[in-house]
């Protein structure tokens, strides 16, 4: 069936089966390879993307047809080139990644977390990211990266106060 996916502000007309999972539609029909697949049981979260600006979803546990009518944001839509998002910058600066496989999802999950809680404590971050696995970093530097990005992102608002 033909559906239209709005990804990172761009419309993609794609032909999928109802059983096509969103992650494969993004990767194979839209050519956006940032969301990865790491498990079969919705456990690892490396496929996390954001719906409607603030809802993190595991795109392996949603059918592509269900994403019609939603704004989908993937890592490719967050920032790039000279305009990295504060989260992307912070993950780099705090060494919050190693193999990079979980990184796009970890960043997207952090992005959603900060939409709901702009000033999270360390415990909030650890709880908030507990749907995303990382095998390389031991999470220490991921937590630091989210703290740095949160501070960066709050700055304009705080400056305005």
């Amino acid at each position: 069936m033909e559906i239209t996916l709005n990804v990172n502000g761009q419309e993609h007309k794609v032909d999928v089966e109802p059983r096509t999972l969103l992650v494969y539609a993004l990767r194979e029909n839209c050519g956006l390879k940032g969301a990865h697949v790491g498990c079969d049981s919705s456990s690892c979260g490396v496929c996390t993307v954001v719906l409607d600006g603030k809802i993190p979803v595991k795109s392996c546990t949603m059918f592509a047809v269900q994403a019609e009518g939603h704004e989908i944001t993937t890592i490719e839509g967050l920032g790039g080139g000279a305009n990295l998002h504060p989260l992307q910058k912070a993950f780099h600066e705090q060494h919050g990644l190693q193999c990079g496989y979980c990184t796009p999802a970890m960043i997207m999950s952090s992005y959603a977390l900060l939409q709901h809680n702009p000033d999270p404590s360390e415990d909030d971050i650890r709880r908030g990211l507990s749907g995303n696995l990382c095998r390389c970093t031991g999470y220490m530097n991921i937590v630091k990266a989210v703290q740095q990005a949160a501070a960066d992102m709050r700055q304009p608002a705080e400056a305005a106060d």
């Binding site: 392996c60 059918f63 009518g69």
Partner: peptide
């Protein structure tokens, strides 16, 4: 019925569940 799908879709991925019709209520 397909609501959140967080139990159903994994079961379908394992093909432990093979419904022939899904009725999505999310909208």
């Amino acid at each position: 019925i397909l609501a959140g799908g967080q139990s159903l879709i994994p079961a379908m991925r394992y093909r432990l569940a093979q419904p022939t019709v899904l009725v999505d209520i999310n909208q």
